[in-house]
Design a protein around this nucleic acid. Structure first.
Length: 308
DNA sequence: AAACGAGTCAACCGCGAACGC
DNA sequence: AGCGTTCGCGGTTGACTCGTT
């Protein structure tokens, strides 16, 4: 029996998400939390499959995501974690809470792979291409040799991570905690465990913790950063008007979005953005008013920690 | 200004794991 | 235990941007 498709192929929209769709999705998650993705399209009326909604949230709308401009420390971490864990991007992303697995994967494939290739030369035996650090890919060397090399890799990774993290200890508490996890890995266990590192990102995902009353938010600042993401998106969207499908899609959906009383945002500062009453006649004006700060005016990791 | 190629990244697809009945 | 459903992950694709000619 074949696996049923995750959604009906008919009537399901594909391609880039419009700001309106983003707002609808965020509105839903703000109300129900990031769970039961299956219900999202039917509840919200979004013409997207549940998978697409989850991905959009996880990779783009989720609060606390930083995009682009990978720091040297992050690069180091990614390189060494990749050496440690292979192409297990979700596990790697769990050590970089502000980054998504997709972002790390892209950055690896577009930047770091080349960088390492340049550094080590083409005939280097290192596993810079990913995957070869796993026992299943080490057929050319004996198990003993592989374990020896892994021990060295782990040691090197520890040192590099220590070095990288020591620079930015103040706001990287989570990294420190995660470092403890990674340094506690027993190399012997590592060999036999199929999943030595729990994807910590899952523990961060239910960031918006709502009480049953949707007006009583305990995670205002974290949600604000999600609004922040959308605000930035909308701003760039306005600056560079969408072409092709994006524009036509938004044209067709704007009215319904504005008529949805739950999706307007009002606030005097980005850190206090909450969902408010809809003012259809106001359009996105209030949204932009809400967003008037620098892009890095978002909650800190410490603030996130306080939520748990 | 136009054409082309390379680089980037958001989104899709398919698979396996986890979960619930 | 077996089956169907849902979720999460990693690989891949393709649209878009940017630089060069």
């Amino acid at each position: 029996m074949g696996r049923p498709p995750c959604c009906d192929k008919i009537g399901v929209k594909k391609g880039p998400w419009t700001p309106e769709e983003d707002i609808i999705l965020v509105s839903y998650i703000q109300e129900h939390g990031p769970a039961n993705w299956r219900a999202v399209p039917t509840t919200t009326g979004l013409l997207r499959c549940s998978k697409s909604c989850r991905l959009r949230w996880a990779n783009y709308l989720r609060p606390g995501i930083r995009r682009g401009n990978f720091t040297e420390q992050e690069e180091k971490m990614i390189i060494h974690l990749q050496a440690l864990l292979g192409n297990r991007w979700a596990a790697i992303a769990s050590y970089l809470p502000e980054r998504t697995d997709n972002d790390i994967k892209n950055y690896w494939n577009t930047h770091l792979k080349k960088k390492l290739k340049k550094l080590h030369g083409n005939c280097e035996t290192s596993n810079s291409d990913g995957g070869s650090s796993s026992p299943s890919h080490s057929s050319s060397i004996s198990r003993g040799q592989w374990e020896k090399r892994l021990q060295t890799d782990v040691h090197m990774a520890k040192l590099a991570l220590n070095e990288a993290l020591s620079i930015d200890k103040s706001n990287n508490f989570d990294h420190i905690n995660n470092l403890n996890n990674i340094t506690n890995i027993n190399t012997n266990n590592f060999v036999v465990q199929s999943k030595p590192v729990v994807p910590l990102i899952n523990q961060h995902q239910p960031i918006i913790q709502l009480s049953t009353s949707t007006t009583n938010y305990t995670a205002t600042s974290t949600y604000a950063s999600s609004c922040d993401n959308i605000a930035r998106l909308l701003q760039s969207w306005i600056k560079t008007p969408p072409k092709k499908s994006c524009q036509t899609a938004s044209e067709t959906t704007t009215q319904s979005s504005l008529n949805n009383p739950s999706i307007m945002l009002t606030s005097s500062s980005p850190s206090e953005v909450t969902f408010g009453e809809a003012t259809p006649e106001g359009g996105f004006d209030s949204f932009f008013k809400a967003w008037n700060g620098p892009s890095d005016n978002v909650f800190t990791l410490g603030e996130t920690a306080n939520l748990f």
